[in-house]
């Protein structure tokens, strides 16, 4: 099981701060997004936002990044600090 965290407006839109996903080792982040939408069709609009950002093990990453079981994955909207 892989743990996926959601923050800010994305968490509010999905109605949950985290979810566990079962995925094969080495699956890309893009495939993880597709799996989340398949598991939760009501999340399709929120998870399809083109500006959505991804972090793998607390580092910004791109959607082609291969994922491992023990990775901490986070999805969030564009950041607005400062």
């Amino acid at each position: 099981m892989m743990k996926v965290l959601f923050f800010a407006s994305l968490r509010d839109a999905l109605g949950t701060a985290e979810v566990d996903v079962s995925l094969a080792q080495g699956t890309t982040a893009e495939a993880l997004r597709a799996q989340l939408i398949a598991d939760h069709p009501q999340w399709q609009i929120a998870l399809s936002q083109p500006a959505l950002l991804l972090a793998v093990n607390q580092q910004m990453a791109d959607w082609q990044t291969p994922l491992n079981e023990s990775d901490e994955i986070a999805l969030f909207p564009p950041v607005t600090g400062g």
């Binding site: 923050f7 800010a8 407006s9 509010d12 500006a51 972090a55 910004m60 986070a74 969030f76 909207p77 564009p78 950041v79 607005t80 600090g81 400062g82």
Partner: peptide, 23 residues
Amino acid sequence: LKTEAPFWKRETADGKTSWVDAR
């Protein structure tokens, strides 16, 4: 910091909250 540090602003007005959009 403005484009990579994971902070998000939510504003409150008249009891309503709204997430601030990225610029």
